[in-house]
Design a protein around this nucleic acid. Structure first.
Lengths: 203, 203
DNA sequence: GTCATAACGCAACTCTAGTTGCATTTGTAG
DNA sequence: CTACAAATGCAACTAGAGTTGCGTTATGAC
């Protein structure tokens, strides 16, 4: 038995081209038809990669979505700075709103939230994605602490969650329109509560 | 042409029995297999009502879900009173958590949030459902205003949204576990912000 | 260059969701 | 009680998602 080489994976050439083509087609399809219209057959046709190949490599629609989401996690992202926590969080909320409503990233993100309900795999990818975003946005709060705007010991991620949660709530749960005033109110409430020490863990 | 009577609907007898059987089967199926496992064929088999009939009357899974959601809107619900806004909102958040995670109502609610992404009909039913809940929960805030805990002019529904949004955010977006401390923090932040006048509309 | 094999393309297949035409049952008006 | 039509049951059908066996291509090691 020469079984010390049980088989090598081969990431190069055609395989890499197919991966790129399928992922790109997935994003395009999501942008055009949304999650409800996302089907393996269409992605296959659009990418020129055979249907059976897509099923074998990604396992189905959920796998395509997970891959697309993981791909967008790799894209570097950094929040804007405006000089004060309240306006920083407002800018963050604006970014969130755009990032979940406008194609193409918006289609991926919103579709992932939807698919996470029925696919543990997508749910896990979404969790990882949001954790990454939390960590990146938390810098806004730690900087506010450094500026003395917010007391020491404040939980930065908790402030971020508090600021963005009402936006997601309106978008995906209560299904209400989201105005600029809504974004501002959520940001202001979170910033004020942070300044007041509400996010410093109690003993 | 005797066409002055174009046809009468008939709500009685067998039709009513079928409606009840199908709705009950829908709730049971949701509780057992969740939204991903909700299928017309299973509901049809469980209820004893023929598949074609279900498709004709409800149009498919989305229709079943809308009907179940509208049915649960009719159920009267009233928030608990504890005597103070902070603890009122904590109790509300506890109810929200239960109402979206425990069968059978939890299955309906969570499934509706999921289905609203791909079905405008479910989205509209969900919006109506949440509007109803907002209105009922808002009483907690108006009573706090009456007690003098919260300034006049406070937007009650906005306080409710602020309190519950982080719960939904963790449940459905960031997919993080929800602890009692999380419920309390969200309630406290909302109550403090309300007491501080953050929810009084600016000029 | 040559060779073993991972990855792919292809076609035919299964399975299930959803539809349709028609006969039958069953409320409801008179 | 009788008659009409709405609602249902039934069975056969269509369509599309997902699977499988097998031959072909192309990658990476030698």
């Amino acid at each position: 038995m020469t079984s010390d080489t049980p088989g090598t994976t081969r990431p190069g050439g055609r395989t890499a081209r197919n991966t790129a083509a399928v992922l790109e087609a997935t994003l395009d399809e999501l942008g055009e038809h949304g999650y409800a219209g996302l089907t393996v057959e269409r992605v296959s046709a659009r990418s020129g990669v055979h249907k059976a190949t897509v099923y074998r490599r990604w396992g189905g629609v959920e796998g395509l979505l997970s891959a697309a989401l993981e791909w967008s996690t790799t894209h570097p992202w950094e929040p804007e700075r405006t000089g004060a926590l309240h306006t920083d969080l407002l800018a963050l909320n604006t970014t969130v709103l755009h990032g979940f409503t406008e194609a193409p990233e918006g289609s991926v993100s919103a579709a992932s939230v939807a698919a996470a309900f029925s696919s543990p795999r997508v749910a896990e990818a979404l969790r990882a994605f949001m954790t990454d975003r939390h960590a990146r946005a938390a810098v806004l709060v730690t900087e506010a602490v450094a500026r003395g705007e917010v007391p020491d010991g404040t939980d930065p991620v908790e402030v971020v969650r508090s600021a963005v949660a009402p936006v997601y709530y309106r978008l995906f749960v209560s299904r209400e329109p989201v105005t600029r005033e809504d974004l501002d109110l959520a940001a202001r409430v979170a910033a004020d509560a942070a300044a007041g020490g509400s996010f410093v863990p109690r003993s």
